[in-house]
Design a protein around this nucleic acid. Sequence first.
DNA 1: CTCCCGATAT
DNA 2: ATATCAGGAG
Length: 220
Amino acid sequence: MMNKKQIRFCLDEITKMFPDAECELKHANPFELVIAVLLSAQCTDVLVNKVTAELFKKYKTPEDYLAVSLEELQQDIRSIGLYRNKAKNIRKLCEVLIENYGGEVPRTKAELEKLAGVGRKTANVVASVAFNEPAIAVDTHVERVSKRLGICRWKDSVVQVEETLMRKVPIKEWSDTHHRLIFFGRYHCKARNPECPTCPLLELCREGQKRMKKEKEVNA
DNA sequence: CTCCCGATAT
DNA sequence: ATATCAGGAG
C-alpha cells in the first residue's frame, strides 16, 4: 500500500499527463448528465455521446421520455447495450423526478442514489460534475488504476477504494483527481495494453514492475 | 453472485 | 473469438 507521499507523486505526475481531464459525457444540464451517466454503464462514453447527440434533441424533459412507448425508447438507445434495463430505469427515474422533485434533478448523493438505475457511482458523478459536491466516483478505470498502482489493496471493494481515495486525497482535489485517474486509466494505464514502458509511475507501480519483469523473462 | 447486451479493439 | 466498456438491480 502506498503512503501519502507516494500517492502525492502519482497525482502530480498524472496531472502533468492529463492537466485538462474532465467529464467527457456531453450534456447541457443536470438532467442530461443523469441520463448520459445512466446510459454509460458497461459502455464507452464515445458511444454514449453518439447516441445522446440524437436522443437529447428528441427528449428535453422527463415528460418527453414518458410520452413515447417503452419500445420506442428502447430503440432509441438500443446501440448502447443493456437497453431494456436502461429504458425501464429512465422511465421510472423520470416518473420520480416529476412526482417527487418537481421535474428537477436532486442535488445530494443520497437522493440521487434512490433514483432507478442510479447507483453509487452515477450519484457521485452527478453530484460532483453537475452540482460541485465533493465526491470521488469509482468506475472501472479508477478501480483498476488504484489497484495496479497500489493506492489500495487488490481485494478492496469499490466502496473501499473510494474511501481510501477520500482519505488520502485533499478534498479540494477530489474532482480533478477523479477525472485524471479516469483519463490515466482510459488512455495510458489501459485494461488491455497498459503502456508501462513509457509510464512515469513505473518505478513505484507494483503491477508495472511485475509486468516489466515478465517481459524480460519472455525476451530471455 | 448472475443477468443485462451492443459496439469496438485486440 | 474474446475482453472490455464512466454499473446497477435482483
